[in-house]
């Protein structure tokens, strides 16, 4: 898969604090990467550096082959960004807000089509003549997202995009992100609500203390790695031994009634594993994907890191 974003030894210092410490990773085109980590992990700094809003001490950032540090303005034609604390031009109508955003991102010619299409995707078609300052919090959030994506950027970077949205709007947003991904767009989304990210994220990038702890595909992605959970009423030691002997099982976390582990295999291999466990008479009660793959992986990664430290 083609690399859309490449970070190489990205280092960013605030006076007395290292916000990013030699972060390197490659993000595939067409993926939705959940950027997660505790407060102060460096998520917003990473996003702002990626968008050319902050200049790092060292390292390189490439977006769609463009060096963001050397050519920030050119890279902005390929980038869309929604800040955590965004603002709108309150005195302009939604229509004019979107027209300005499109023109400012280098779109030329008739803007009626892009404005109408973007407004429709965000459920703003009937609000185009309304002043941005008169909109509710949720609608303002949608206008801000529309401004960030009206120029059809290759990469969309969103910092807490669902903050302040009601459940229905969040669901709409998740559907929109999946549609953008299906259209080939690459998304990097930061949020503390992991269950929400799980609805659309294909990859997870974990930061803590400015360091990259993990960058991996989530369930259903190309490497077929997924987190599975099973409940049982039999012998935990026998189950642990059985699973531990398999090369396609890793990260086993077992309690007297439940086991969670990473499984590297397709659906047929998953069915074969279940058959194997049932035939071994291990009293399996339930078997399937862990209810919250992202949350489980995040907690496991951060836990391992802190234990190591």
């Amino acid at each position: 898969m083609r690399t859309m974003i490449e970070l190489t030894d990205l280092t960013f210092d605030y006076p007395g604090i290292r916000a990013l410490d030699a972060v390197s990773c490659r993000i595939d085109a067409g993926s939705i990467t959940a950027l997660v980590g505790p407060n102060g992990a460096g998520k917003t700094t990473l996003m702002r550096c990626l968008c050319g809003l902050e200049r790092p001490l060292a390292g390189r950032i490439s977006v769609d082959g463009i060096d963001v540090i050397d050519e920030p303005r050119r890279s902005h034609e390929r980038l869309g960004y929604l800040s955590d604390f965004f603002g709108l031009y309150e005195d302009l109508t939604v229509d004019r807000c979107l027209r300005h955003a499109a023109a400012a991102h280098g779109m030329r010619g008739a803007l009626d089509g892009p404005v109408r299409d973007t407004a429709t995707r965000l459920g703003l078609a009937d609000r185009l003549d309304q002043r941005a300052g008169d909109l509710s919090r949720g609608l303002r959030q949608r206008v801000a997202i529309a401004q960030a994506m009206i120029h059809a950027p290759r990469v969309l970077v969103l910092d807490e995009p669902a903050a302040g949205l009601d459940p229905e709007a969040r669901h709409t947003l998740a559907t929109l992100f999946r549609a953008l991904q299906a259209g080939g767009m690459t998304l990097l989304v930061s949020s503390h609500i992991l269950s929400e990210l799980e609805q659309y994220a294909t990859h997870m990038l974990v930061l803590e203390g400015g360091r990259l702890l993990e960058h991996r595909a989530l369930a259903g992605m190309s490497d077929q790695r997924r987190t599975l959970a099973l409940t049982f009423s039999g012998d935990a030691a026998a189950l642990a031994a059985r699973l531990g002997a398999r090369s396609d099982v890793q990260g086993l976390d077992i309690t007297p009634a439940r086991a969670v582990f990473d499984f590297a295999g397709d659906e047929r291999a998953q069915a074969a594993l279940l058959r194997d466990l049932v035939l071994a008479d291990l009293a399996i009660l339930s078997f399937g994907p862990a209810s919250s793959d992202l949350q489980a992986r995040y907690l496991a990664t951060v836990g391992q890191h802190r234990a190591g430290a």
Partner: peptide
């Protein structure tokens, strides 16, 4: 004050 400056900085305007 209106927190729109980041949006302007993210534009492609020279």
């Amino acid at each position: 004050r209106a927190r729109t400056w980041d949006q302007q900085r993210m534009s492609a305007l020279s």
